[in-house]
């Protein structure tokens, strides 16, 4: 053991060795660069959306866009009311959430509170498979299997409809809801569960009265994230819900969601720079604002409930 250090030795030992400094600087720059690229990309997307959106609103009044119920931008007498697209997106997303929330929550509660490690190790990979199916496959599944199946019960249902698209989209979102809410349940300290078990609580009582309330902020955030996923989902609705902008909440008829409309125009022969071309940026920007607001709300929810529960 050293008893004493001379002052010059202390000074030396405090100086950073050059090799370390260079290595650290290099790693730091790589990390900063990676972060910068993604931040810059986000801004670039917003900017490119913004410029064409502004150009669109120089030709179409914002009032008409936000209040109109007719969406016919490619007709000779074009109308630019966003509501048919909004209701379609709302309808398919709502149906999807009606499917995904109960199933997703049931799965995550089962996995986190009831399942044996063995059951969990079997079910989780299965869920991941469900999450790994390409959405275009889901779309075909909705169009070619679910719609004909539904026709057995509802003869009036059209070949393209939001019910079938919404149901299948719900199935697609189940793994997202399940996995995000399971994370929220797992984040509940084990001590809380033990406290309840120690009082003679049964499993379902621990799950419903202790774990679920304690995880509420995480659950709410997970559901909002799943919702924004549903709102932004494209292939399923483009394939199965149709491309027919109708202002309706009837789930049995063809509609066109915002995303489906963007696909339709992007793949069509709309000339660059035309008003039809600009609409997709306006619709894209609207979509961006909606998902941004949802994510923003989920952040607030997390923050507020965390104060209450931790």
């Amino acid at each position: 053991m050293r008893i004493s250090w001379s002052s010059s030795e202390v000074g030396l030992s405090l100086t950073r060795r050059r090799s370390q400094a260079v290595g650290e600087r290099a790693i730091r720059s790589i990390l900063v660069a990676a972060t910068a690229i993604s931040v810059i990309t986000t801004f670039a997307i917003v900017l490119s959306l913004a410029s064409d959106t502004i150009a669109f609103f120089q030709e179409v009044s914002l009032i008409e866009y936000l209040t109109g119920t007719l969406w016919t931008p490619l007709f000779s007498n074009p109308k630019f009311g966003i509501w048919p697209l909004l209701t379609a997106t709302f309808l398919t997303s709502a149906i999807a959430m009606v499917v995904a929330v109960p199933f997703g929550l049931a799965i995550s509660i089962y996995l986190s509170e009831f399942a044996s490690p063995r059951a969990r190790s079997l079910i989780k990979p299965l869920l991941e498979v469900l999450a790994g199916i390409p959405t275009v496959v889901y779309g075909y599944f909705a169009l070619t299997a679910v719609t004909p199946f539904l026709r057995g019960f509802i003869p009036d249902i059209k070949s393209f409809n939001s019910l079938s698209a919404g149901l299948v989209m719900g199935v697609m979102i189940i793994p997202i809801v399940a996995s995000l809410t399971e994370d929220a349940f797992n984040a509940v300290p084990r001590g809380l569960r033990e406290a309840a078990y120690g009082l003679g609580a049964m499993r379902y009582e621990v799950a419903l009265h202790v774990v679920f309330p304690a995880a509420l902020s995480g659950v709410a955030a997970a559901l909002l994230l799943a919702l924004s996923r549903a709102v932004g989902e494209t292939m399923i609705v483009a394939l199965a819900a149709g491309q027919n902008p109708t202002f309706t909440l009837n789930p049995l008829v063809p509609v066109s969601t915002m995303t489906a409309y963007i696909v339709q125009v992007s793949l069509g022969d709309t000339p660059y720079g035309s008003i039809g071309y600009k609409t997709i940026f306006a619709v894209g920007a609207t979509l961006f604002v909606i998902t941004f607001v949802i994510n923003f709300i989920s952040t607030i929810v997390v923050r507020r409930f965390r104060e209450r529960y931790e």
Binding site: E194, A195, L199, G200, P213, A214
Partner: peptide, 20 residues
Amino acid sequence: PVEVRRRIGMVFQKPNPFPK
């Protein structure tokens, strides 16, 4: 075991009140 824990209660190392 639920009945057992009702009669033999427990206090833990880290205070763990419910978020209620």
